[in-house]
Amino acid sequence: MEVLGDIFNLALIAATLRTTAPILLVALGGTFTTKAGIFNIGLEGQMLIAAFFAVLGSIWTSSAIGGVLIGMMAAMIFAGTFSLLVVTLRANEVVVGLALNILAGGLTISLTKAIFGTRGSIVNPDIVGFAPVNIPIIDDIPGLDRVLSGYTPLVYLAFILVFVVWIIFYRTRLGLHIRVTGEKPEAAEALGINPNTMQHIASLMCGALAGIAGAHLSLGYITMFAENMSAGRGFMAVAVLIFSNGDPVKVLLGCLLFGFSDAMALRLQTFGFPSYLVLTVPYIVTLAALFMLTYRQRPKIIRETLESMSLVRRQEP
């Protein structure tokens, strides 16, 4: 019991929220492309390139916000390239997404070497990161202070964005048109909505949020850039997007699951438990959810009964 108490405590909740934030940011970006009907496997690369340029931007502008904006721009350039190739030129979305992911990996390594002359990581005293923010009233409530206060600003932003994205999808024309584009492009077209334009807009919005996610990695709790620092979070987001179908609330739940197992894994390591097993849980949940979804949609065979046959006969005009 004592061990369980050591594992499940308030610090675990705080750790979960912290590890959830970057996945949530990038997954919320992915909701735009998912809703617009694009399978976007390039989230990982957009996040990584943003993490790099956020560090660079932070040094150039000597401000964390400046770093975020430059990181977002870098990710949006990637997102624009992605949608140019996929939407306008009709290239295969998986191939383009993977290519941009590989490009992001290589480019960040080369630029690190070229600009900083180092390999592996950029550690520099000129990088300005975000300081944790304490919320005054909550800080006075014991217990809550450890769960709801003391995060960096982008963590709060991530959770606020769940609501913002929900409003965009379900209460604005832009969101409605993006959803219609993904669900029934021919309906959109027939009613004067240009599906291609919608997909470009969705891709750029995705890039913007993936950019914030990347900046959070390099300017949030640690102020450094490391090779491949996105560490598969973009792919976790893809998994969340597949079973949530881009719904922001389900995305939040899915990301919390990934964040929780991440936090659990870290914790269990100290108890000698194989953390990799814990890390597999969200993926198993994704597979199970997908299986259930498709199983419900399988075609059914109809058999007539005496009743159904006489019903049809009575309907004859």
Partner: peptide, 25 residues
């Protein structure tokens, strides 16, 4: 038919000519 299955009847009727108030539908 060119209807969007996940939307309500009213949303489908007004798709493309949505009525808005303060920028929200």
């Amino acid at each position: 038919f060119k209807l969007v299955p996940s939307l309500t009847a009213a949303d489908n009727v007004f798709l493309g000519i949505e009525k808005t108030r303060n920028g929200l539908i």
